[in-house]
Design a protein around this nucleic acid. Structure first.
Length: 327
DNA sequence: CAGCAACCCCGCCAAA
DNA sequence: GTTTTGGCGGGGTTGC
């Protein structure tokens, strides 16, 4: 149960990460089905923090605020030549021992690592920090090529806008795909970027011009998930050789045709499971799995639970308002 | 749940 | 010289 959320800023603050935190947990989005969070901003000490651009942040809560937090948002750490203060490390460890969930943005992973909470775990951080983090904390498996890593009660996000993806992932995990999608729609961002998607996406939106062919095929794929088109067929549809299609596809989406299709299928399956009473067999058929077993297999692998459990967990919590697709 | 056939994907390389 | 293309090999994954 996540109700009390505390963001921890350090010796400076980044407007983007802090903005993501306030946007996601500060505003009342109970009309979308989220709980109303008790959101607070804490610091190592109270008082003023300055960003490099003249913004001034007034910190009203000290680290004691972490002691009743269900979710702690670790803001980026500023300087890898400075060790996080003992008081901060203690507070973070206490929160973890108490059962709170900890989430780091960008270089905030440094604080979690310094507290020893990432030992033996996978984690990510901003790609510019990945080498330093891995060198300083050899017990941490640093993966700079993903948007976020979910280790249960500890989640680490990559840099910059990946904080958005991390939060949407948490919403999806805790409250289901429909609510996460509704929040994404409210923020006018794409509903779901898979955690494993690389940070180095050359061009998120394919450039116009000669890749129109690819754009058309992507649209077709999205609308025809139930068609089990092979890469060869898709390439033919795009008027390219399979090899070139694969390359253009990766440049445009950051992933491969099969992985992309699978992610889309699972996402759509989630929505059908949450919002309808269709038998799992029928859900599988509609989103392009030949058999329910195939859907179940992938569902367990990527989401950790079988479709039936997923449906049981999320269907009852959804408020039926809100989600008119015209939104 | 294992096994298998089909398919995918990426590095490599030569050609355009 | 640089960039793009497309065919190939074969290790990996998926579907049934």
């Amino acid at each position: 149960m996540i109700r009390t959320v505390v963001a921890v800023a350090h010796t400076s603050f980044g407007a983007l990460s802090l903005g993501v935190a306030t946007e996601m947990f500060g505003y009342d989005r109970s009309h979308l089905g989220l709980p109303r969070f008790d959101f607070r901003l804490a610091g190592v000490r109270t008082g003023e923090l300055r960003s490099p651009f003249g913004m001034v942040l007034k910190i009203e809560h000290g680290l004691e605020a972490l002691d009743d937090a269900d979710l702690v948002l670790i803001q980026p750490w500023d300087d890898d030549t400075i060790e996080p203060p003992e008081a901060l490390i203690d507070a973070v460890r206490r929160a973890h021992d108490r059962g709170a969930t900890l989430m780091s943005f960008c270089s905030g992973a440094w604080v979690l690592a310094a507290a020893g909470l990432l030992d033996g775990k996978r984690a990510t951080t901003h790609w510019e920090w990945a080498d330093r983090l891995a060198a300083r904390f050899p017990n941490v498996t640093v993966d700079p090529g993903v948007l976020y890593v979910d280790e249960g009660r500890i989640l680490t996000g990559a840099g910059g806008a990946a904080g958005v993806d991390l939060c949407l992932h948490l919403f999806r995990r805790e409250w289901g795909a429909r609510i996460a999608n509704a929040v994404a729609r409210a923020l006018v961002v794409p509903p779901h970027r898979d955690g494993g998607q690389g940070q180095f996406i050359v061009s998120p939106l394919p450039e116009v011009g000669d890749s129109d062919r690819l754009v058309d095929v992507l649209a077709w794929m999205r609308e025809n998930l139930h068609e089990s088109a092979t890469v060869d067929q898709l390439a033919a549809r795009a008027l390219m050789s399979p090899r070139s299609f694969a390359r253009h596809f990766r440049a445009a989406t950051g992933t491969t045709p099969r992985a992309w299709l699978l992610a889309q299928r699972l996402q759509q399956a989630e929505e059908l499971l949450e919002s309808g009473d269709l038998p799992v067999e029928e859900v599988a058929r509609r989103v392009g799995f030949g058999t329910a077993a195939a859907l179940r297999d992938q569902f367990v692998r990527r989401r950790g639970v079988p479709p039936r459990d997923y449906r049981r967990a999320f269907r009852s919590t959804v408020s039926p308002v809100v989600l008119a697709e015209t939104g």
